[in-house]
């Protein structure tokens, strides 16, 4: 049974190339298949393909639905949701 969870893009620059690289590098650490879906347009991407993720062109404030399917889906989903919520390790432009 695949797992899914929503999260918001909080970093100032959105899901740009470097953020996408962090996402894909994290996704690649797991065996599970990863789908990334924008909940506003329902455009979806393969979470292990950087081009696919970049083409989502998701700016700050976009809600993503992450779906993980596979033997390590729980760990994969947890790590990826954390990464998105932490602004891909970039500034979250808080102040």
């Amino acid at each position: 049974m695949p797992l899914e969870q929503t999260c918001l893009i909080t970093n100032r620059l959105g899901l740009h190339a470097r953020a996408a690289a962090r996402f894909v590098n994290t996704a690649n650490q797991f065996k599970s298949e990863i789908r990334v879906v924008r909940t506003d347009t329902w455009a979806s991407a393969d979470g292990k393909s950087i081009l696919s993720v970049i083409f989502l062109a998701a700016p700050r404030g976009t809600q993503l639905l992450l779906i993980a399917d596979g033997p390590d889906e729980q760990a994969a989903l947890y790590s990826l949701v954390e990464l998105v919520r932490n602004g891909f390790g970039e500034d979250t432009d808080v102040f």
Binding site: A21, V24, N25, S49, I50, L51, S52
Partner: peptide
């Protein structure tokens, strides 16, 4: 800085 480029070259798409 170069991670996106490296990943693109690995991207089956």
């Amino acid at each position: 800085i170069l991670d996106p480029h490296i990943l693109m070259l690995e991207d089956p798409l």
